[in-house]
Every structure is written in C-alpha cells, then in structure tokens.
Amino acid sequence: DMSEGIIARFRTMAIHRGSVLIGHVVGSVLQAVASVVLVGAVGAAIGFRSVDATLLEWLAAFGLLALFALALTWIAVGMGMAGPNAEAASNSAMPLILLPLVSSAFTPIDAMPGWFQPIAEYQPFTPAIETLRGLLLGTEIGHNGWLALAWSIGLTVLGYHWSTSKFSDDPK
C-alpha cells in the first residue's frame, strides 16, 4: 500500500492519520480471532476437553489470545513500516514465528538446558502459554497471568507508537 499510491491519496483526505494503520490492524486481529475460533472448533471436534474451565475462564483465555494477537500485530506493523521496500516488509516479522519454539509451548522450561532456560522464560510467549494452560487445563497460573497481560499491553503500546511514528515520518 505504501508504494502503490493509495496511502498518498489517503494522506490528502480529511481522515485521522492513524486510521489506515488502525484499519489494517483491526482486520488482522479479526482474522486472528477467526483463526482461533476455527482451531478451537477443530480441537473440540477431535476431542479436546477442558476439565474444569468455567465460562469465565474460557472468555479470559479468548481475551488473552485476542490481546496477544493485537500486540504481535502492532509489532509486525512496526517492523513492516521500518522495512525499505514491500519485500523486506513482508519478511521482517518472520522472526516472531520462531518465538513459540523457544518457549514452554513444547517442552517444560525445567527440562531445557540451563543456558537456554532464561531465553525461554523471559520472552512473551511463555507466560501467555502458561496462562492459557492454567485457564483451560487447570494448572497453576501463578504470576504468568500478570506477565502475559504486561507483555501484551507493553508490546501493543510499543508497536502502536513505533508504527504511527514511522507512518508519520514516511515521506511517500
């Protein structure tokens, strides 16, 4: 969009400067929410059952996933805005895909090599995953719920300010 002239046209219109970015983010988050619903439906269809999760815990899990998707989307928009061209922008968020692989998603942190444990423990996916496990599977959440919220809100604010400042600074 930045290189094809539509953004230049939007800049001449009497609209809020951030509405273009916000529209893209809202669309991406809605797509992520639809994906979560689809994956949840498939999981339920093939036999996933939450043992003791209440409706409130299910809603909290869904809300956390939506907030986490919002945070990662804003960070990805910022990374894309920092890219010099469309090709670089489309691939700049690729490292975010690797973060779940270095979290507690597949292996408990205690079972990881000692040098690797801090990497897995102090990144945004681990507290989010542990919170989701706690909400839906009844495991201990501990401080992970607050950490997941803090990571999500912090990344959302950081990504929003980064994206909007790059968008405002863009001379195109």
Rank of each mutant, 00 (worst) to 15 (best):
V42L: 14
V42Q: 10
G43M: 15
A44N: 08
A44P: 08
A45C: 07
I46Q: 09
I46N: 12
G47F: 04
D52K: 14
A53R: 12
T54Y: 08
T54C: 03
W58K: 14
W58H: 14
A61D: 11
F62T: 15
G63T: 09
G63Q: 11
G63Y: 05
L64W: 11
L64F: 14
A66M: 09
F68C: 07
A69N: 13
A69H: 10
L70I: 10
A71N: 01
A71Q: 01
L72G: 15
V77E: 15
V77R: 15
G78L: 04
G78E: 05
M79H: 03
M81P: 08
A82N: 13
E87S: 14
E87Y: 12
A89Q: 12
N91I: 13
P95R: 02
L96D: 05
L98Q: 06
L99R: 05
V102R: 02
V102E: 06
V102M: 03
S104D: 13
S104E: 06
F106Q: 03
F106K: 01
F106N: 06
P108R: 05
I109S: 02
A111L: 05
A111E: 10
M112W: 00
M112I: 00
F116Q: 01
F116Y: 13
Q117F: 01
Q117C: 05
P118F: 04
P118D: 01
E121W: 08
E121R: 15
F125R: 00
F125D: 00
F125T: 15
T126W: 00
P127C: 01
A128R: 04
I129E: 10
L132R: 05
L132D: 01
G134N: 00
L135W: 04
L136S: 12
L137N: 12
G138Q: 04
G138F: 12
G142V: 03
H143L: 12
L147F: 14
A148E: 10
L149F: 11
